[in-house]
Design a binder for these strands. Structure first.
Lengths: 337, 337
DNA sequence: ATGCATTTTTAGATCGATCTAATTAGAACG
DNA sequence: CGTTCTAATTAGATCGATCTAAAAATGCAT
């Protein structure tokens, strides 16, 4: 049971060299003669030696580990984001420690602490709803390399990688304008989300710029079924909108279902634009959702790159990496009659 | 820049006690007098002391970290699985190290090694396609607590948590039989997947048991669009099937799309059953997919529990935790004319 | 006070690697 | 063959916590 761990000492002894030499071989130093290297490597393979990184990091100071905190993993938006991070870090030999805040700032604080205990060299934080700027300031002040991703509570606090939410909304509005729509609604998430203000602001601004009418903003909860009740709510508005822009694809898909249930046809009776371009959109029955693609995988990769840069050079200037969203026109938007 | 780390020594000095006492306070031992505890805790808060887990684990042997390897995070099936693991481990104060094998056994070996270096106390492995039993045998022999999850390359090698694939298929077949279907096809993934054999075996066996006809097995690649070409392939079979059971919801949704493109109506012209019950099924336009729910979150939680049990008691008997799947009848299956 | 049993505290060894600084082996040369 | 320079190796200190075993402080009864 209590199998004693194979240590560097065992390897050294078996290979007839010193601990120091064995250590050099493991770390691929070129200070060691080829013959010696081969000998040691053979022994390592035979003994199935696995270095104890605890000891290594204690002495060497680097854990080659990065902490990642996300609100949850419920939809592919989040998991693609994590995939992007993982792929990029993996390439640089880093390991990801994943934790989910469940959008609770309290929990998030605990996780941050735990990640530091676990000696993460840096942290990528997709901030939970309601995160205090203070939380981030403290970490940065303590010298913890940190990147805010997707959301932020202040871009002057740390590096940041995200999407241009304003542009996403503007693209949607312009697309609808080109199709002749003049009365447009926005289906948003209830609750205080930082990105909500950002998008609503851009929505109203762009409507004004294009001389269009805000036909009303409705708030729905984010449920697994996408809250199809939004359909009836929209149809009850006066003046009635001919198009709706949704906060994300889940809400948009819920709206589609709601429309069907009312016997209405998306793209004809009401044009619908989503946000995220979740991967399920191309699946299943038509019509397919017109939506704005935001490339979470790229944003994940970008935040990983930013973090590695900051770990290497803690004094570097603050940097933001904004991935440009792209409109994907499919079936749920059409010309107004 | 090079902010020197606050160590236990600093805390001890500031509080006027010894390192050992400070250490006891941190670990919440009741060996220490209340007055002393308070004093030390105050200092810890003031100095914002964060223990170096590297040092702790070097001495104490426990890292409170568990490695999780999955093939990828592409669909919600995987991310729900990870969520289940994370939630369960988090509750026990464990941290998840996540890595993606991209279904490549070579990569997987590298990751396993890395997780061991990072001193994971145990590993939950969703084995990559083509994993050799040898890989797992070696780990178990080396005394690494390990749980295979979802797939396995031998249930007698380690603990296992998964779903009853055979039952899933049997439920599907019986449901179709009840609707009057007699010629049923199976849409599978190309390639050698362990679960493929298992499901196909159950498929043929249950057909035999129910006196039904195998109208043909077709293989398609797993693409982001669900490979809609499966529709044409099925319709070209002779005798033509009246129903098809798909390997997963992605393939099933691709098939639905393919049917629509051919002007055919799922549930009327061909009944379709999926597998997984991915969360997007309730979203978007009807018809909604009839499918078998497999509860990945529960399976994740179960594998976490199994792992914690094995960490506590390395000598415990091998155990398998099989979550029972459930058929969710929706719109894509209907009576045969 | 004194002795004895507890309760608290602590010195010092220890975990397994890395780093520094010093040593040894090997090569090249006159 | 001795000298010098470079390449290869190594002894020993070190990282920051935990553990053990023993010492110091405290309480209590006599």
């Amino acid at each position: 049971m209590a199998v004693k761990r194979t240590t560097l000492m065992d390897v050294a002894r078996a290979a007839g060299v010193s601990r120091a030499t064995a250590s050099l071989v493991i770390r691929g130093s070129d200070l060691v003669a080829d013959k010696t290297r081969e000998k040691v490597e053979k022994v390592i393979a035979e003994l199935d030696y696995v270095p104890n990184s605890g000891a290594a990091r204690l002495r060497g100071q680097k854990s080659r580990t990065v902490g990642v905190i996300i609100p949850n993993l419920v939809n592919s938006f989040f998991s693609e984001f994590v995939e992007g991070i993982e792929a990029e870090l993996d390439e640089q030999g880093y390991q990801v420690m994943l934790a989910s805040s469940r959008d609770d700032p309290e929990r998030q604080s605990g996780l941050l602490r735990r990640l530091r205990e676990h000696d993460a060299e840096g942290i990528i934080l997709f901030p939970a709803e309601g995160t205090e700027p203070d939380t981030i300031e403290k970490l940065v002040a303590a010298g913890v390399p940190l990147v805010q991703a997707m959301r932020h509570v202040g871009r002057d606090l740390s590096d940041f990688a995200g999407s241009d939410h304003g542009l996403a909304v503007r693209l949607s509005v312009r697309h609808l304008r080109d199709l002749g729509h003049r009365r447009i609604s926005f289906v948003s998430l209830a609750g205080k989300v930082s990105t909500r203000e950002e998008r609503l602001g851009a929505f109203e601004e762009e409507l004004r710029a294009q001389g269009l009418v805000n036909a009303g903003v409705i708030d729905v909860p984010l449920e697994w079924d996408g809250s199809p009740q939004s359909a009836a709510m929209l149809m009850a508005l006066d003046p009635r909108p001919t198009a709706a822009i949704c906060f994300n694809d889940i809400l948009a898909s819920g709206l589609l279902r709601g429309l069907f249930d009312l016997g209405l046809m998306p793209g004809r009776d009401l044009s619908v634009v989503g946000h995220d371009n979740l991967s399920f959109i191309d699946l299943g029955a038509p019509p397919r959702l017109t939506t704005v693609q935001v490339f979470p995988r790229q944003i994940g990769a970008a935040s990983a790159k930013l973090l590695l840069r900051r770990i290497k050079d803690p004094g570097a200037e603050l940097k933001s990496e904004i991935v440009t969203p792209r409109l994907r026109v499919r079936d749920t938007t059409g010309p107004v009659d």
